[in-house]
Write a protein that binds this DNA or RNA. Structure first.
Lengths: 342, 342
DNA sequence: TAACATTATGTAATCGATTACACGAAAGTA
DNA sequence: TACTTTCGTGTAATCGATTACATAATGTTA
């Protein structure tokens, strides 16, 4: 029914060559004004649409960029992607989504697939930072495809990154708990091979030390980012000789679980026990007992990553710029830790 | 540094033609076994990767599919996209994301852009159903690109859709409130030009009538899907001569706002007042006073949409199949409406 | 008017892969 | 031995656009 209209069809109709049509459509100054107008009018009337694939093949640029995340149905990653899409759309780029489900092999496959698909850049949040196998990453770099890490990054030369200052995030959350009068603060940490969790932990530790409090290993519990894990952690913590009176959790979900378990045990929040989480998930502010949390400004992170990509893509290919953007975390103080103001 | 390796490079090295290389790589049976092995080995050693753009241009299939949603950072849409990605990834398709921000013009632009980019199919949730301007949609259909609506659909011949039974969703939620002993149930509705909201409303109405209750216009309030809107609605409802004792909200966010406002006024939930929402947003089950809500199984909706696409794409192009898949909603009963069980 | 500059357009290669058709060589058949 | 298949590979067109180079048409100058 609708045959594809190409520049050859236009050329034939006007008794000129495809080259002239192409030039006319691209506003090449060497084309006579009358010809240009004729071509433009004819193209419109024939409902011509440029075939981007042909253009991509010729130019070597697909105008697609790939985004790799552990999973898309998390508020954080979805917001980052939103930021990326909004920033790149005006520049004519389309965003291709890939998920790793925290599987390093999936991550590798995604990288190869995206390069195969000739994307013009890859923005990603790394899944397994500890994995020594950086083959796929170097493969990307060899192809001179800009690679940008956001949130979770890996230390690879030539790769830019956009992260938040997780150390500071851990620090201000912990400092806040101290300021609220908490004397013994526990920490629910995440996978320490990931810099984000490591730094949140280090920020927590430093805040304790800077404020004359002692740091003890047994108050740090490694948890998965899940409600159940938070409950279990509280159970463990309350068995300690000296029970803590506050928790700084590197995950909002674990913080929620902790709160649920504390309530179960009739421990009053924030009076007897304060809790702060990390990520500022939407639910933290919806709760009746709203949860204090560190915001990571995911939308801004996405936009910034996109901007870094745009900078890289314009540069001469031979120059490797390595830009490290670090965004500031922001503590949202809510009921779960507001003794003074409530 | 890393020049792109093409089949011509392999051909030159082996003193054969690119055609033979292509055939060997594609397991064409006409190729001598020894030649095939040689080519495969050489290709591997030269680190050859097929250029998908060239393939796409030749075959007319990009192996990309476009997904258009109002916004990606909503749990519902993100989950649908997750489902789509997981179902299509094994089939070699990449997912391109577009957002409309509820702007019909953006929606049109996205449609044209995706077709320009030669996607093999478009899966979308419609932004403005009332808009009579279906030009972009027909443009897609003329190009014989499979178009599938999910959740929010528009009635266009030749277009398949995957939705949930919103009527039933509204019905079972309302029936549940009736069963809990509520005598006067209000409804927070959404944009009635969207079938999903219209049907939730109709289900609500029918449940009332089927159970000997009277339906009154003044108990139906049109709200935006936002917390504030829910609060305002409660304020309005409580001013009525006979105040309602329950709310069925077509949005979880409005339901949350309603609950907050009711609590503010010291109305006890669920004893004096029951509330049920729609969408089963993550926060509904996290609340201390968890919120009853209708689940739309977004992941399943995404997977199903992808499957419908896969069916369409294989068929001969001339046959227009129009498949309407309707998923069953599921009511998750929680504290905000559990008088009997709690 | 001859010589030259300028302008607009045509010719053909290119991007990288696929594939209908052609063709030579080997194998099978009479 | 002569003829027909079969097999494996080469030739060249194709997908749709861009662009270096060639060339025709027009204008300018001495």
């Amino acid at each position: 029914m609708s045959e594809k209209i190409t520049i050859y069809d236009i050329a034939k109709k006007l008794n000129i060559t495809a080259a002239t049509v192409s030039r006319a459509l691209n506003n090449n100054p060497k084309i006579k004004e009358s010809t240009r107008e004729l071509v433009l009018k004819t193209a419109a009337s024939m409902n011509y649409k440029q075939n981007k694939l042909a253009l991509a093949l010729k130019s070597g640029r697909s105008n697609n960029i790939g985004v790799i995340v552990p999973r898309i149905d998390s508020n954080f990653f979805a917001s980052v992607i939103r930021g990326i899409e909004e920033e790149l759309q005006p520049h004519g780029y389309q965003v291709i989504i890939c998920q790793t489900h925290e599987d390093p092999q999936r991550e590798n496959e995604n990288l190869y697939t995206l390069i195969d698909a000739q994307v013009d850049g890859i923005l990603m949040s790394v899944t397994d930072v500890a994995d020594e196998n950086t083959g796929a990453f170097h493969y990307v770099l060899e192809k001179n495809v800009p690679l940008i890490f956001f949130d979770r990054s890996k230390d690879i030369s030539g790769v830019s990154s956009v992260t938040i200052n997780d150390f500071k995030g851990g620090y201000i959350a912990t400092k806040h708990l101290i300021d609220e009068g908490c004397r013994c603060i526990a920490h629910l940490s995440g996978d320490q091979s990931l810099a984000i969790f490591k730094n949140r932990f280090l920020g927590y530790k430093q805040a304790l030390l800077d404020n004359g409090m002692t740091f003890k290993e047994e108050y740090v519990i490694n948890v998965k980012s899940a409600v159940e894990a938070g409950k279990d952690a509280v159970e463990t913590l309350l068995k300690l000789p000296i029970a803590p009176d506050a928790i700084f959790s590197s995950s909002d979900f674990a913080a929620l679980g902790a709160i649920q378990e504390l309530k179960e045990r009739n421990i009053s929040i924030p009076k007897q026990f304060c809790v702060a989480g990390f990520s500022n998930e939407p639910f933290t502010k919806f709760m009746e007992l709203s949860i204090t949390s560190v915001d990571q400004s995911p939308l801004e992170m996405g936009k910034m990553s996109a901007r870094v990509f745009l900078e890289q893509v314009d540069k001469t290919e031979t120059i490797k710029i390595e830009k490290k953007v670090v965004l500031a975390p922001e503590l949202h103080i809510r009921k779960s830790s507001s003794r003074t103001s409530s």
